[in-house]
Structures are given as structure tokens and as C-alpha cells.
Amino acid sequence: MTTRELRRVALDGELTIMTAAESKERLLTALPGSGGLRVDLAGVEEIDTAGLQVLLLTRREAESMSLPFELTAPAPGVAAVLALAGLTTAEEQ
């Protein structure tokens, strides 16, 4: 649908309050000028509310720029948390 390609960002380790500032920075700076984001969560072992917030924020920003935002390959535990917030992953769509 978009002419430009989705930019792929891979997160790994923990997506928690410890890394939230860093993750926010990475995701938000990756957004402008891209054709949307595909966030690869395969390496994420742990997620908490702070991490969840960052993803939700990024999704909102992407939407405000009319860019697609996809999450891929979360581990089951992470996927369950994402589902709480209504964040679906690309494979399910």
C-alpha cells in the first residue's frame, strides 16, 4: 500500500523501565522519513508497563503520520502482554 518500505527495528533483551528511555528514543527517531515501522520483538525476553507504553506511544505517533506500524515475532509471554493493550502482531493480522 505504501510506496516506501517498512523500516525494520529489532529490540532485544528487556523492554522495561530500565530500557524504556532508550527504546523510546530508538523507535521515535526511526519513524520520521520511513515508510512505517516493523518492530521485531523476537529478542525481547521481558516487557513491563513502561515498555508497553513506549510501544503504544510509537503506534500513536505512526498513526498520526499515517504510517503503518507492525510488531513481529514476540515470545508468547510478551505477546500476551501486547494483547492486553490491543497491540496485535503482524502474523496475526
Partner: peptide, 18 residues
């Protein structure tokens, strides 16, 4: 269900605040 309505603008959002 999660309510993210309170999330502020990206630049004002403090990643450590709930």
C-alpha cells in the same frame, strides 16, 4: 483493556512515568 488516553505528546512523555 488498556487505556492509553493519558499518554502525552511524544516529546513530553517520560518513559518512566505511568
Amino acid at each position: 483493556s488498556t487505556d492509553a488516553a493519558a499518554l502525552p505528546a511524544a516529546e513530553e512523555m517520560d518513559p518512566e512515568t505511568c
